[in-house]
Design a protein around this nucleic acid. Structure first.
Lengths: 228, 228, 228, 228
DNA sequence: CATGAATGAGCTTTCATTCAT
DNA sequence: CATGAATGAAAGCTCATTCAT
C-alpha cells in the first residue's frame, strides 16, 4: 500500500527536488504533526490556531510554514498520517490459527477496540467536522481507512465461501454487516460522547460475541438448513 | 449593559410565560434559525460567521442578538430544533398492522431513510464537529435523538418477547443491533461523504431486508431450535 | 438667575411652539433625567447606553427621543439640572447673623459638605470625563456653579472690606483662596477616590476652621498690623 | 487561544526578568504609548477606539495586542507612565538655597506650573472620567502622584518646625493647605476648561506669592505673636 | 533555516437611532 | 404619544500568514 505518492502534505514532485525540501528534518516535521494532533483533536480544525500548534509543538511559526504551506495542508497531512497509523494492521487478525468464529472474534475485537478508542473517535469527530468543506479528504479517510479493513474482511469471507465454510451472496455487504454489528451499541454512542469512556474488554467481548453468533447463525451453513 | 432583548421594561416573569420574550416575533425567529441552519450545516460552527447568517436569514446583525444571546446559544437552539424535527415520529412505524418482520422492515426503512438523508447527515457532522467543545450538547443530541428511537424499538421487542414471538435476552442491545444492521453499509459511508447521494429505495430495501432476515434468523424461535 | 433660556435640552424656540413640546409631560421628563443621572454617574457618558437609561428610568427608548434629541442633549440637560440643584443656595450661608468668622465658617462648611458629597463628586467626574469633547459644557458648569458661589463670597468680602472689617486687595482672588483652603485636604482626594467616604462633620469643621483662622489671620486688620 | 504575545516558546520565567517580554521592542512600545496618550487625552477612555490609537501610533492593531493585553491594560500602563513622568521631581524644589519663603515659592511655582499644565490637566480629566469604574487606578494615581509631593512638603515643614522656624501642629494638613492655596484660582478653573490657557508666569507668581504670604503670616512665628 | 514581530482582514458583539405599530 | 423591534456602523479583539533578522 504505497500511499505516499499522493500525500496532501507533499504537493507534487517539486517538493522532493526543490530546495524547500532539501534539508527538511523529518523529526521536526513529526514534532509539528504531534503538536497539531493534540490541538486539532482537542479543538477541531477552525478553533485551533496556528499559535496553539506552535506552542504545543514547541516550534516557531515560521518553521511550520516551512514544512506545510498552510493550515489546511498541515491538517490534511496530519489526518493522512493518522489514518495510516490507525488502520495499518487490522487485517492481521484474520490470518492465523483458529475457526472462522475465532478469527472473526479476533478481528471484531481488534477493530472495535481500535475504532472506538478515544484517539480514533476524536479523529473521526475532527474529520467529520470539516467534512462539508473538505469532502474529498473525509471521503478518502473513509475509503482508505474503514473501507479498506472491510475489503480485507470481504476477501477473507470470499475465501471461506469458496471453501464451503460460509454461504454468502455478497461478501462486501456481509463484511459491512459484521463490522457494524460488532460495534452496534458502541460506535455511535462513543461518537456523540454519550458513552464517555472507551469500552471495556467485557463490553467489547459481549458485543463482538453477539455479532459473531448472529453472523454465524445466518451465514454458516448448518446441516439441513440453507441461509441466504 | 448586557441587554440582549432590548426591552427596557421587560420584567422577567413575563418572559417565561408564553413565547420566550413578550413581543418577539416567532416567524422572524424561525427565519433566523432557518438561515442559521443553512449556514451551519454548510460550514460548521466555527467557520460560520454571524455575518453569513445575517445574510442568509435576511435579517440584520442586531436582530439576531435580540433573539439569541450569542452564537453558541443560536447554535444550540438550532440543534435542539433539528433534533426534535428529525426524531419526532420514528416509533410510529412500529405500531400498526403486519407481522414482526413487516413492522421491523417498516421501522428500519424509515430510520435509514431519515438518518442517512442529506439533512440529517449534515446535522450529524456539525454536531460531531463541536462535540469535543460542547460535549453535553452532542451527548444530549444522541440521547434524545437516536437513543430514544432505539428505546421504542426495545419496548416493541420486549412486548414480542413476552408474547413468545421473539427470544431475546437483552432487548436494548438487540435494538442497537437491528438499528445498526439496517444501515450497515450506508451510515458510515454517508457520514464521511464516501457515499455522496442519499441511498435509493432499492439500496435501503436491500439493507433493511438483510437486517430483518438476519435478525429474525437469530432471534425468532423456530420449531426445534433455540436462539440466544 | 434665569438660566432657563438657554438650556441645552430646549434647543431653540421651536420647542416651545411646535407640536413636539405640546403635551410633553414634565413628570416623565424628570423620570428620564433621574434614570439618566443614576446611569451616567455610575458609568460615565460613553459607557452608559441608552438602554441602560431606558431600563433605569422605566421608559421606552422612543420616549426618551421624544424628550431629548439624542444622548448628548440628554446628558447636557441633565448636567444643567444637576448644576442648578447643587449650587442653588450656597450664598445663603453668608447672610444672616454672626461675626465674619462665623459666617465664613457657615459658608465653608456648607460648600465643603456640598462639593465633596458623593453625588457632587460623581457629577464632577462625569463632567470632567467629557470635558475635552464638550468643553463649553464643562466650562459652563464651572462658570455657573462653583464660580458663581465664589462671586457671592467675593461680594460679601467686598462689603466687609468697605465696612473696614477686612483688608483685601482682590476679593475675587481671596474668595478663591478661602474656598480652596476650606477643602484643602479633602476635594482632590475625594475627586480621585483616594478618600472613599464623604468627610465627617469633624473633618469638615477642622478643615474649614483652619481656613477661617488662616484667612482671618491674614486678611483681618489687627491693631497695629497691616495685611495685604 | 489567549495568546497575547504570539510567542510560542515563551516559557514564562523569562518574561518577568528584564523588559516585560523577551524580544519586545521598547521603542515600539513607547510609540504605542505615545499614540495612545494623544488619543486618550483627546477623547477620554471610552471614546478612544483601538483603531484611533492604531492610526495615531502608526502601528497595526495586532501589534498593540502583542504589547498590551487589552485596551484597559494599555490605558493603565499609560497612566502609570504619565504619573511617573509628571510627579518625578517635584520635591527637588524644596532642597537648595534660600529662606523658607523662597523655597516654598520655588516649590509652589513648580507644582502649579506642572499640575495646571495642559498635559497634566488632560491626564487628570481622563483619569477622573474613568474613576468610577477603575477606582483603584484613580486612587493610586493620586496616592503616588499629588499625595507624594505633599508628603515631601510635609517633611520639609516638619524639619523647619523642629528647627524652630515654623510653628505647625499638623504638617500634613498644612502641606495640603499650602498646595491648594498655591493653585487657588487656577486648578479648578483649569480642570473644567473655564481657564482655557496654561497660567502665565505672572499669574503663577501672584498666586503662589499670595499663598506663601498667607502661609508665612499664619505659620511663621513672629516676635511676640503666636500662630495656631 | 529558524524565528517571532508585524500585519490587517475579519471575527463576535454592542448601541445610538429610527419608525411601523 | 408610547413602544420596542430592527438596523448597521463600529467597537474590541484574534489569527493565518509574511518577512526581516
Amino acid at each position: 500500500m504505497n500511499d505516499k505518492t499522493d500525500l496532501p502534505g507533499c504537493p507534487g514532485e517539486l517538493l522532493r527536488q526543490g530546495r524547500r525540501v532539501a534539508g527538511q528534518d523529518p523529526v521536526k516535521r513529526d514534532q509539528i504533526l504531534d503538536g497539531a494532533h493534540r490541538v486539532f483533536t482537542r479543538l477541531g480544525f477552525d478553533a485551533s490556531s496556528m499559535n496553539d500548534i506552535t506552542r504545543e509543538a514547541n516550534v516557531s511559526k515560521g518553521t511550520i510554514y516551512v514544512y506545510f504551506a498552510n493550515k489546511e495542508e498541515l491538517f490534511e497531512t496530519l489526518m493522512e498520517r493518522e489514518r495510516q497509523r490507525i488502520f495499518s494492521d487490522s487485517e492481521m487478525a484474520l490470518t492465523g490459527q483458529g475457526t472462522i468464529a475465532e478469527r472473526l472474534m479476533r478481528y471484531g475485537t481488534l477493530i472495535v477496540r481500535l475504532v472506538c478508542s478515544d484517539v480514533v473517535i476524536r479523529a473521526h469527530r475532527v474529520i467529520l467536522g470539516v467534512g462539508e468543506r473538505m469532502p474529498e479528504m473525509a471521503a478518502r479517510f473513509y475509503e482508505r481507512g474503514p473501507q479498506k479493513g472491510k475489503q480485507a474482511l470481504a476477501l477473507f469471507m470470499k475465501a471461506e465461501v469458496e471453501a464451503g465454510n460460509l454461504v454468502i451472496d455478497d461478501v462486501e455487504f456481509a463484511a459491512h454487516q459484521f463490522s457494524d454489528l460488532c460495534m452496534a451499541a458502541i460506535f455511535r454512542p462513543r461518537l456523540f460522547g454519550y458513552m464517555a469512556n472507551e469500552p471495556t474488554t467485557a463490553e467489547i467481548e459481549r458485543s463482538v460475541g453477539g455479532a459473531v453468533a448472529m453472523f454465524m447463525a445466518y451465514y454458516a451453513p448448518r446441516p439441513g438448513a440453507g441461509a441466504a
